[in-house]
Design a protein around this nucleic acid. Sequence first.
DNA 1: CCTGTCCAATACTTCGTACCTATGGCAAAA
DNA 2: TTTTGCCATAGGTACGAAGTATTGGACAGG
Lengths: 323, 323
Amino acid sequence: MSDLVEFRNLKYLIAVAEEGNITRAAKRLYLAQPSLSTQMRGLEEALQVPLFIRDRNGVHATPAAEILITGGRELLKLRDGLIATARALHRVTFTPMRLGFSSFVDHALYEMVCSVHTSLFPECEITSRSGDNVELLLLLQKGEIDAALLALPISGSGFKTYPFTKSRLVVCMKSDDPLARLKEIAPAQLQAKLTIFQEPKQHPEAHLRLMEMLDEVGIRGDVASKTTTPHNIQWMVESGQGYALVREGSEMHVGLVTRPVTGVTWTVDSALILGKSTSQKTVPGLIRELRKRLRLQVSPSSASKPPRSVRPDIEDENLRLFA
Amino acid sequence: MSDLVEFRNLKYLIAVAEEGNITRAAKRLYLAQPSLSTQMRGLEEALQVPLFIRDRNGVHATPAAEILITGGRELLKLRDGLIATARALHRVTFTPMRLGFSSFVDHALYEMVCSVHTSLFPECEITSRSGDNVELLLLLQKGEIDAALLALPISGSGFKTYPFTKSRLVVCMKSDDPLARLKEIAPAQLQAKLTIFQEPKQHPEAHLRLMEMLDEVGIRGDVASKTTTPHNIQWMVESGQGYALVREGSEMHVGLVTRPVTGVTWTVDSALILGKSTSQKTVPGLIRELRKRLRLQVSPSSASKPPRSVRPDIEDENLRLFA
DNA sequence: CCTGTCCAATACTTCGTACCTATGGCAAAA
DNA sequence: TTTTGCCATAGGTACGAAGTATTGGACAGG
């Protein structure tokens, strides 16, 4: 009978009551609203107790629900404590999570991953390691890091990769540039002016692919200036050396603007790559949670998937995810 | 993180620890042993804590597991209390469960259903009502009972039926009858002596079907004596009026024995039939639990399914089910 | 008045996982 | 040896919790 009520149900109930609004609660729980609605109905059904009074602007807990809520909070806390002590008793010491990330991926993404990890495993340290794709892949290979956030495509196979964000690439220019008056830039207008790139050696595959994509719209990739970090790129644009491609939504120095390029949807795809044989026990839990929050799916070790062509549809939600 | 541990997991853990033996615990929980095994492994995996020391004759909880077990017991108790008070606050009063059962079904089955019901809903009374199939179907039709235990087939459609036990039919005779020396009876030997039946009017469809089955093996159904209860049947056999067919495993008067009939597998199938539109809120829970315990599946309202032909394979487990 | 917004509920589909059966391995008892 | 009593593994199924798409009701603003 009471087997119909699990911790999950209590958690949902509490969230809904606290928000006073199923839609908002669903967002907080990383769920879709109808899912949560049916869960709540199901709970009322199972208990044979009405839990909410629904009205135009939300829901309001009944007295019976209040009981469940306060009791439920208590139970959830007890559960966490219980697990923590059982853990402690067996001296579950986590080796630190060794996470690499390349400058090609959004920093916000990195922070999000870290925040999810520490919220799941507060006792587990994270030791970060940044570098370019080539370096990081080597470290993964050697087992010196457990996972890394990289830009696709990656060479070498046998890596488990979890692709997630696709950021659109836009042109970065000075705000007083004549082209900055336009809302969108035609590819032809970039001819000969798109000259600033990240150092190709940092990610040969991605660079090659980028050159191909430029070629497809008739632009020659003049790698006149090379640099190593997104910041440097912006400085170089500021000093008038040409245009550069940057991730849409990245934070820009003052005096710089970004403009989309008409007719193309170039994207840079980031992914979490796992070391071949990690002993890091937090990895499965991390993946699980990330999958739930970001709706991402596995793509097991095949390194194809060209970095473009998918509708970006930047939901900006992505960046709000880490609470 | 701790979201990986639900009440269910604690319950299983406790059962396993208490039995010291996964197989036995699985039986107690109405689960298959491998299911429980994988659950336990999964829990150890999720917590990153070894919970059991396995050896040749069972499992033994580690200290960490002991913590979880005592804490878990507490939590389960708290949950039950919590739900009970929430319920009480909303004055959830159950209307009594009105359950009918015909004399064609095994009494043990009836008791089992009752015991499951009261263990699920201790506050809910059961008012029983016995009668023959025809009467009970009428009562279901009129909504005067919520559910009934009947023998298939049933006429009239639109009833949700949950078939469960199939009991084999055997011949009942006096122990000093010459045929009682045989281990099995050939159909031909029954000719003209199989004369005692339940009153056909109590269940016309079943009687008809029985006559058909007898016909198939060349026996004429001579309904010489008719009676209304299984007990009466036995008395009539005792007084030497002929043979009768009874459910295998039914309790027999002293001086009577049963013998299987070679070459045929006649069975009588019992089912739980639901009223067309019951307001009885305990029904879904009851069905759910019965399905879990007996592995029975729905057969939605079609009244076909002839009462024979399926391997009986009486597991006798059936009767031990109600604890 | 209509239209847009903000709720929750419904209908239907998809996917994960808890469960099943069948089988294997291993140690102790027969 | 074979049998017995465990647990573990492998592979398939089915139910439920999740998703998407859509509807309906109740305001509020133009």
